[in-house]
Each structure stands twice: as C-alpha cells, then as structure tokens.
C-alpha cells in the first residue's frame, strides 16, 4: 500500500477507536455515577414499585456491560432509542435538528474562514503596526467574553433597537432559503465573531512561523515585495497549519453553537441537548453526546489528514 494511504488509514482507524472509547465514556458518565436515573426521573416522592418498574423498563437491572453493548449495537444501526419524556424516536428528532445546526455552522464557517485568513495575512503584513495591535487586542477581549454576551448585545442593538433582523431565529421547512438566511443572520454573526479572533491569531502565528525561516529571508534579500513573498513562499508552506486552525475552530464552532442556539431559541442540536439535560432524559443526552463527540473527533481527524497530505515531512514518522 502507498505510504500516504497507509498513514491516512491509520488516522481513520485511530479516530474510530477514539470514538468507540468516547462512547464508553459517555455511557459510563451517565450510568455508573452515583445518580440513579429512575429516581431522578420520578423524583423523590416516587413509590418503590414505580421505581422498580421504571428500572426494569430501562433495563437498569442488567449488568452495565450488557446495557452498553445493546446501546452501542442499536446506535450503530441508526436506532438511538426513544426519548423518555415524550416517547418519540430520538434518531428522527435528532436528524432534523442536526441538519439545522449544520446549516447554522455552515454559514458561520463560510463567512468566518475567508475573513479570518484575510485578516491574519493583514496582521502579518502590518506586523507591530496598528492593524496588528488592533487584532491582538480584539483577540484578548474575545477569548474573555462569554458567547451569550456577544449574542445579547447584537440582539439588543440590531434586533430590538434597529429592527434589522428578527431576535429569535425560528426556522422551518416551509421557509425559502432567503427567509431562513434572514432568520439566522444574527446567530451567524455571533458565531463568526466568536471564532474569528481565534482563527485570525492562529493564522497569524502560523504564517509568522514560516516567515522566520531562511528561504523567506532569501526571498526578501533578492528583492521581492512583501505580498509576493507571502503569496509565493510563505502561503504554500503555511497552508497545512492554517487548514488545521480552520478545522479546530470548526470543531469549536460545533460546541459554541450550543449556547448560541439557546440565546436565539434556534431549533438545533444544542437546544435539544440542553432541554433534555434539564429534563434528565438520559437516552437523548447520550445520543446527543455521541453525535457531538463524533463531529468533534471527525473534524480533528480531517485536520490531521489534511496536514499529512499537505506536508511531506509528516509522511515519514520517526
């Protein structure tokens, strides 16, 4: 087998293994911890009989390993069980909401990724001058600001005071794409702001790292302009780290979406998870946890694979 293919196959196998381990962790986290699910669902006033019935119904009397294997086996076949609170099929509700979340994350990524790379290049071009300092300052502020503050500030000014966009982002299937885009304008704006600074700073660092190498000095000494040095010499070498940065931030986006969905009452995965954590609906929480972990691990895997493909030096493990 081609060595590159072999490395890629190894990464995929490793990620699958990691996801399997993560599923164990999620299962253990929701079952072996001291809280009793049946007690939590029925409350303190439950009679011993109803507790025993519910335990039997949930299969809580079986050994943990048996329950885990049954859960995993069903999940692999696309059966995530039924929600305790409303008895509906989890896979069905989850599929629709996952679609909505991906729609939101997709548009946030489409706007933030090119913008972040452009601003990162700008920061390198004007290093130590005001655009660079401004970008560093904004980054410092943005890692300190909770997502919901950005969300409510934008909502307060743009939706309530100016009336440019709706304050709640309700979407449904009967809406046209333009109506949907108008509805999600504010949450997309917030998500963009949340990941932008981070991505910008990491892009800047990745390019600066390349800029300090000897071949760049040579290019500068032979009299190329700064922009053509960046375009011809720095950028090709910085692509792999930048793709890495983008993937890591997309992974971050998937988590940031949880809070933003609650702020804007958006019918996505995050809202679904938070609602059912509050209702202590364990099967839904397990399913959501598994999907979030899968997306997160998947994006990290893509980042690794792209680095391997883009950087020949990573193809020869020592």
């Amino acid at each position: 087998m081609h060595p590159v293919l072999k490395l890629v196959a190894q990464r995929i196998a490793l990620s699958t293994l990691l996801l399997l381990a993560a599923s164990v962790l999620i299962f253990v986290g929701t079952t072996i911890l001291p809280g009793d699910v049946a007690q939590q669902i029925l409350g303190q006033s439950a009679t011993p009989e109803s507790l025993a019935n519910l335990r039997a119904e949930l299969g809580l009397n079986d050994p943990a390993v048996t329950r885990y294997l049954a859960w995993l086996g069903a999940a692999l076949q696309g059966d995530l069980g039924t929600a305790l609170t409303n008895g509906r099929d989890i896979a069905e509700s989850l599929g629709q909401r996952l679609g909505n979340t991906m729609f939101l994350a997709f548009w946030a990524a489409v706007i933030s990724v090119p913008l972040a790379i452009f601003l990162g290049l700008l920061a390198v071009r004007f290093r130590d001058r005001w655009p660079d300092k401004l970008i560093s300052g904004v980054t410092l502020a943005s890692i300190s600001i909770p997502e919901f503050l950005i969300g409510y500030v934008l909502m307060y000014f743009f939706a309530v005071k100016l009336g440019w966009a709706p304050s709640v982002a309700m979407i449904n299937d009967s809406m046209s794409v333009w109506q949907k885009l108008n509805a999600i304008a504010l949450p997309v704006g917030v998500l963009t702001l949340v990941v932008l600074a981070h991505m910008m700073r990491m892009t800047r660092a990745a390019i600066l790292n390349v800029m300090q190498s000897a071949y760049i000095e040579t290019a500068e000494l032979k009299g190329l302009s700064t922009f053509s040095v960046i375009r011809r010499h720095a950028f090709p070498n910085a692509v792999a780290p930048i793709v890495n940065v983008v993937m890591l931030n997309l992974a971050y986006l998937v988590v940031g979406v949880v809070v933003i969905e609650v702020v804007f009452v958006y019918p996505g995965m995050g809202q679904y998870l938070v609602d059912h954590v509050a209702k202590r609906d364990v099967p839904v929480v397990q399913a959501c946890g598994l999907v979030f972990a899968a997306v997160y691990i998947g994006l990290n895997m893509i980042a690794d694979i792209v680095s391997i493909l883009a950087n020949p030096r990573l193809r020869h493990p020592k």
Binding site: G29, T30, L33, V258, V277, V282, Q286, G289, Y296
Partner: peptide, 9 residues
C-alpha cells in the same frame, strides 16, 4: 458537552 452529559444524572 461532557459536563452536560454528566450533569444530566
């Protein structure tokens, strides 16, 4: 996500 999963029980 992990914190939410654990806090559900």
């Amino acid at each position: 996500i992990f914190a939410l999963v654990v806090l559900s029980v």
